[in-house]
Amino acid sequence: MAQSSTSRSGDTVRTIESELQRNGPYILAGLGVSGGLLLLANRNIPAMSIPILSSAADRVAYALRWTGLEGISMVTAVWCVIGVRAKYGVEPTGPEGNHHLQMTQRILTNTTESFLTFTAAKLALASVLESNNLRLIPALSTIFIIGRYTFDAAINHPARTFGYTLNAVATFTAYGLFLYKLFSSGLHSNLLPFSLR
């Protein structure tokens, strides 16, 4: 019994090591690119005219405008499904058509899940950000869309980990900053000033 669990843990370690060898460079590249984009945005976006928005509703509306950029990934995923259905028939009967349709539908499902998760994080973050930190919204949106397209482009290759890493960085940065802002000055101090005008 003990030998069996030792064998399983050894297999798990070997599996993790092989996955890290295969995907590690893409994860590091994703972390480097997303970190570089955030630093670049922090340095250069203040030169752009980011509006001073004092109400949380205005900041959320500003973040919603950037959702159109991420929405392009949704439109692309839908058009991929439409293209496969047009090429192989609405409900393909051959195995090749079914394979392509299933793959594009999985991409659409994954894109929808990523889009909704990131949008919720970005809107929550915008509701607690100070006006002078709104530059994070376009930076996170840019990281998300680059990650989404690189993930979809390399769906059958280990390079998809690069896109996945970018998406994860954008989403977890938004949620992490939201939670930090929410709890750093007290839960109620961040919730009470939320005014619709």
Rank of each mutant, 00 (worst) to 15 (best):
M1G: 11
M1A: 14
A2D: 13
S4N: 12
S9P: 06
D11C: 07
T12I: 15
T12E: 14
R14F: 07
N23K: 13
G30F: 05
S34F: 03
G36I: 01
L37F: 06
A41V: 03
N42Y: 14
R43M: 11
N44E: 15
A47D: 14
M48Y: 11
M48G: 03
S49I: 12
S49C: 05
S49H: 13
I50A: 05
S54L: 12
D58E: 09
R65S: 09
W66K: 05
S73G: 07
T76F: 14
A77G: 03
C80Q: 15
V81G: 02
G89E: 06
G89R: 05
E91I: 14
E91L: 13
E91N: 12
T93R: 12
G94Q: 09
G97P: 02
N98G: 12
H100F: 11
M103H: 14
T104W: 07
Q105W: 08
Q105Y: 08
I107E: 11
T111V: 05
T112K: 08
L116Y: 06
F118K: 01
A124L: 06
A126M: 01
A126N: 00
A126P: 01
N132M: 10
N133S: 11
N133Q: 13
L134C: 00
P138H: 01
P138V: 00
I143Q: 00
Y149E: 09
R160D: 02
T165V: 04
F172H: 14
F172S: 14
L179H: 06
L182G: 01
F183N: 05
S189K: 10
L191Q: 01
L192R: 08
P193R: 00
F194T: 00
S195C: 05
S195H: 09
